[in-house]
Amino acid sequence: MLVVTALAVVRTRSLFAVVMLSGVFSLLSALLFVTMDAVDVAFTEAAVGAGISTVLLLGTLALTSRYERTARQSPLVPVAVVLVTGAALFYGTLDMPNFGDPAAPASNHVYPDYIARSVDQIDVPNIVTAILASYRGFDTLGEVAVVFTAGVGVLLLISGLRRRRKGGSKAKQEGPRA
């Protein structure tokens, strides 16, 4: 189903339909995460991928045109690039351990330690939260800083704050609509 949705995204000309299909794609991958027992990730994917980014893409869509232009160049080069990249990624997955493999490097380094100690040390039933906020507190602080920086970047680029400040009270009323 993910593949079908992705193909539909590529084939559709109406950008509105593309936005909706990408929301469908996010929901489907959220389901995939649920089946792999990664509930927290699925939650994020459903909220951010299917919810917020669909809205933001619709907002962008309202600023630009609603239909994709027909491509002028031949699609052969992009197709070749995609095929080569996809083949390289598939080749990479051959080296990955099987899903749930107890000998995988990810489940052997510090995680047995986290799992063993978090009940005593942190006493929080949701171990994802325990690792995210406590053992990996610095990482999460960095993530929050990244989110903050992204927000500041978007504001600096497109919010038009400076124009409002320069233009005095009249421009303040009209500013956001200009």
């Binding site: 809205v55 933001l56 907002g59 962008t60 927000g151 978007v154 504001l155 919010s159 956001p176 609509r177």
Partner: peptide, 9 residues
């Protein structure tokens, strides 16, 4: 604020 920035334009 990202939503505001988009929607205001």
């Amino acid at each position: 604020s990202i939503y505001y920035a988009f929607a205001a334009r």
